[in-house]
Design a protein around this nucleic acid. Structure first.
Lengths: 189, 189, 189, 189
DNA sequence: AATGAATGAGGATTCATTCAT
DNA sequence: GATGAATGAATCCTCATTCAT
């Protein structure tokens, strides 16, 4: 039993190595610009083994998206607070934090949103993500007392997406912290 | 003379057909996800002819970017007004208008910004575009009397980029006109 | 009539320009390594016009070979002398002279000899050339009084082909004149 | 261990099959006149596999040349003898032997010498080969007691190159053995 | 006569995927 | 489980040749 568990863990670790290698490469070179060989090499395994863990290159992308979804659910739960001001503040802070620490994640999701027609699961993910955040933001802004919460939520979510793009373009020079603070002063009491 | 001119026009038209076919495909499928054959077919010509008008697939992308640049220069000039309120209003209106009428243009530019490392000319274009708009917006907001024009310009430009992404995701359902009006009320007197 | 003649001359001149351009390029880059566009550009005409003067790329090669044959016939006639010593001396001198002045001609013929299987007319040319020179040399060496004229003719012709190759490899540094003299001392009284 | 070794051998064998297929085709059709597909088919493998063993078509040619170099070094060493007469005799005999048994090898090297400008490694090979043989021959002729060893070495090496060309042209009918004997009587005691 | 636009086959190369070991 | 050899379709691009002007 013990051994079986350790082996299973081992398998899960390897799966993750492949997944994250793919994630990083997809984010920097694009899905079509990345080959399975590159992914395997980055993960330190053979090309063939990739197909033991994932059905295809497309499946790899699907699983990355699934990973994003699962991670997001956990993240959202961990950020929750009854006080809408605190919750919103945390949401915004978390966005900037990920931009600092896992820029590839946000970069990849953002660019996938622009390739919505490639696969159906991309479109679903994109719409799902859009709706989730939009509704959440609206609710929070509403509770906080914004007069036009619906429109404001739209702007706020757009703003965050836009910051991700600008950060990608400008890189290190982009004043993430400053922008974060400025947005907070506008939306959070 | 007449004939020569007509022929030249014909050539220019064909060049544009190829350019726009490529533009549309690059915007929807990505640069790497689009083959030269697809471009040629969309333009109604043979694969080989593409290479009479453009040196390579990369050159095609470069020429699209050059076209964007030239078009933008003209557009900016035509939108200019001494009154910063009017100028800004026009800028914002024009952005939404293009989103309505030439969504591929904005989609492509936006997605290229996320692939900044692919070619040097993409990076240059991205940084150039970012700086140009940021500075212009800041100047206008400054004249209009915004207290923190620098930070506000950053938000405004980010917001517009973000709207483009959301419009791509949601499509027809996205309330472009409403969002435009709402942004105008916030930034223009 | 006058005009017609001049026009005909003009045509012949243009034909020659194409032929020589092809000859030079075939010699330096090889037949397969040379494109019809390159030939046309080198001749200062359009691609299409090439096909007015020559049926195909293959035909161009065939005509070059025909040109070589015709030129050779004239050359041989002009070198003829009743005295075998003088005739042989002239033959050898002429070979070295062409190597100095028209290295491409010899280079091309030599390399075609190594591609004998490509087209039948290449093989015919090669065998014809080989036999012609071999028989001529043998006859002369015989008259001069060489004991084993047949074998010696074989060596002498091989020697000349080999000098062409070595000259191609070494270039300017190769002592053409010295080698010529040395060969003459061995074979001509 | 056993299995691994056998597999490695298998790989080396396959590599050699590709190399020799290319060698033969390059020799008969020229480098530019030969496609990678043809090579693959001749080697009994798929086009794609060629690129597992060789980086490119150019690399294939380079490796052929490297193979020639290595083989030549071994050959020269095995032919060596303190007696210059014996050494020279063996050198000449070996040349004719290869012409009989591996005509493609000599044909390819000879035709590459005429395409010296194509790749730098061709030029290097050609000059290296020329100098090596020229110096070796001169030294031997010198020891044997030829009065003008330098010039004579030049002629002898040229002669051999020329014989290769003539053999290519004439084929089976060319009297290799007779020519070999005749050359030997002239240069070896 | 002369051009060069246009075509489609073919060339070198890459790549997702499979499979024997 | 793990490898990487092997395949063949697809990619970018070139080129001989044709044809409308």
């Amino acid at each position: 039993m013990e051994t079986a568990t350790r082996e299973k863990d081992f398998k899960i670790q390897k799966r993750k190595r492949i997944l994250f290698s793919a994630l990083e490469l997809f984010a920097t070179q694009g899905y079509d610009g990345t080959s399975v060989s590159q992914i395997a090499k980055a993960a330190g395994i053979s090309k063939g083994l990739t197909y033991v863990y994932f059905e295809s290159k497309e499946d790899l992308l699907l699983q990355i998206i699934n990973y994003f979804k699962a991670e997001e659910e956990i993240r959202l739960a961990s950020l929750y607070d009854d006080d809408p001001n605190i919750f919103l503040k945390r949401l915004i802070h978390d966005f900037f934090n990920r931009l600092r620490e896992r820029p590839e994640h946000i970069k990849l999701v953002t660019s996938l949103m622009l390739q919505v027609s490639k696969y159906k699961f991309i479109q679903e993910m994109a719409i799902d993500k859009y709706l989730t955040y939009f509704q959440l933001m609206q609710e929070l802004l509403d509770k906080i007392g914004f007069p036009d919460s619906r429109r404001e939520a739209k702007l706020l979510t757009a703003m965050l997406d836009g910051v991700a793009i600008q950060f990608t373009v400008v890189g290190e020079d982009y004043p993430l912290t400053e922008t974060e603070k400025y947005i907070l002063t506008k939306y959070v009491n």
